[in-house]
Design a protein around this nucleic acid. Structure first.
Length: 458
RNA sequence: GUAGCCAUAGCUCAGCUGGUUAGAGCAUCAGAUUGUGGUUCUGAGGGUCGUGGGUUCGAACCCCAUUGGUUACCCCA
């Protein structure tokens, strides 16, 4: 027997039964909270037209889009076109004659595309949630996969800050229900970053500046300044940056400090006002760990307002487990202007890793089958089968062992599959129309009638 | 795209500065135990040491290439 080499693509994973159960536990928790807040489900295709995705995630993002090769390239009548297209691609361009579809990179842009296509039928504000896989052609490493799930909730067609507030509360509620303590929900505002950029030579510098200051806690102040110097900032501008990065203290102190620095700027004023609203409006009961972090930038360049980032507990070096923000005009990219929106996303795969490391999955997650009927022969198993079907009718998950083998084996099977109850019907029980029920966790057993079994509380 | 580390039984790994026939634990199967598991004991199967080449009297070990995995940078969930 030759060993066939089998495998799955880099950065993808199979999920065995135990893992799927645990993942579903996370999905269900998130879905329930989304529904509680009035969001409705939506699904979009795995692939989109390449044009829909390109240019939405920045240059780095574009490189990470998985492109799908067109079919029919070997058709003789297309062969010259295909060759020319390939030449184009080698030069770093995209060519529709070679690839015109791509796997989706996130859920937000496909959602914007959906809203643009259906804005006449939708009633606004439109609140949707979406739980689907996305694909990125990244190098896999810890907490980073090429196929992973996002759980998004977005509201479009509303400028109200109430939406931001609700989305922040969703973060709290989901993480609390999952038992994840010590996570951080950091917020910032793109307009504050814009104001900073305007003080440092122009709004168009915002992305450069944001990318650099985002690295503060990783590489330190001096290196951030070095990096910005090479990007063309002068000493005076670096001074402003240094002051900005030096802002510390609690949320109120941070707001005062940033107000001194950029409060005179129009964008700055607006951004600060909105952040202030969120900090003060935040209801007390959840005792939120809402943290203002002026270095928070977030890469996706469609954000224009508040930005969120949910960070894993610091003892787990996995970074961000969710993120989101406000975008003024996402559908404008698809020809439908003036539909503002705001949304958040949960990274389920990373949340899973966090929960696994912190041992947060409840034991009940693992219980699949509740009852195993032992197989003790043809007539015995007939009786067992009939009882089993009645139990199934009462919504009890059960199974009959598939062949008549030694007890030993049947017990071990039950143990391995975490089945809490075994039901034994042998010749004796068959005769007196009873059955022996054994609690495998406690080791106790009793003989009861069929009727008692059907009313048993598993 | 750049860099480091790893690859030995189904799984986790050991294997001395290169030296006969490559080991352990777990798992699997069989028996002790024909209607009562989880413990224990006994035994068995299972490896062209990722692949290809080179150095050597001799390679799991050294060198080169290649494939796969993993971690970090970039970027990100």
């Amino acid at each position: 027997m030759a060993k066939v080499k089998v495998g799955i693509p880099q950065g993808t994973r199979d999920f065995g039964p135990d893992v799927v159960r645990k993942r579903n536990y996370i999905f269900n928790t998130i879905r329930n909270v989304f529904e509680l807040y009035g969001f409705q489900p939506l699904e979009t295709p795995a692939m989109e037209n390449l044009d829909t995705l390109l240019g939405k995630y920045g240059d780095e993002g574009d490189k990470l889009i998985f492109k799908i090769l067109n079919n029919g390239l070997n058709d003789p009548s297309n062969i010259d076109k295909a060759k020319a297209a390939f030449e184009n691609v080698l030069k770093g361009k995209n060519d529709r004659d070679l690839t015109e579809r791509a796997l989706k990179y996130d859920l937000t842009i496909p959602f914007a595309r959906y809203v643009a296509m259906n804005h006449n039928q939708l009633s606004f504000p439109f609140k949707r949630y979406q739980i689907q896989p996305v694909w990125r052609a990244d190098r896999p490493q810890k907490g980073r996969y090429r196929e992973f799930y996002q759980c998004d909730a977005d509201v479009v067609g509303s400028n109200s800050l109430l939406n931001e507030l609700e989305l922040a509360l969703i973060y709290h509620q989901v993480f609390n229900q999952l038992g994840i303590k010590h996570y951080e929900l950091r917020i910032n505002h793109r307009k504050i970053l814009t104001a900073l950029a305007e003080l440092c030579g122009g709004a168009e510098r915002m992305n450069d500046i944001a990318v650099s200051i985002d690295k503060l806690d990783k590489i330190g102040l001096e290196k951030v300044k070095d990096e910005l110097k090479t990007k063309g900032l002068n000493e005076k501008q670096l001074g402003v940056i240094e002051k900005y990065l030096g802002i510390g203290g609690n949320n109120a102190e941070k707001i005062n400090a940033v107000n001194d620095l950029i409060g005179a700027n129009e964008s700055g004023k607006k951004g600060i006002g909105e952040i202030k609203y969120l900090i003060n409006a935040e209801p007390g009961p959840l005792n939120s760990p809402l943290i203002i972090d002026f270095t928070l930038a977030r890469g996706l360049n469609y954000y224009t307002g508040t930005i969120f980032e949910a960070k894993a507990p610091p003892e787990i070096k996995i970074g961000s487990i969710g993120g989101g923000g406000r975008y003024d005009d996402l559908t404008g990219l698809f020809g439908v202007p003036n539909i503002p929106g705001v949304g958040i996303s949960f990274g389920v795969d990373r949340i899973y890793d966090v929960m696994e490391e912190l041992n947060l999955f409840p034991a009940e997650v693992h219980v699949g089958i509740q009852v195993l009927f032992f197989n003790l022969g043809e007539n015995e198993s007939k009786a067992a089968f009939s009882l089993m079907q009645q139990l199934r009718g009462k919504n009890t998950r059960c199974e009959l062992y598939h062949e008549n083998v030694k007890f030993d084996k049947q017990f071990k099977y039950a143990e391995k599959k975490n089945i809490p109850y075994a039901i034994i019907i042998g010749s004796k029980e068959l005769e007196e129309k009873s059955c022996t029920i054994k609690n495998l966790l406690q080791g106790s057993q009793q003989t009861i009638s069929h009727q008692e079994l059907l009313n048993y509380d598993f």
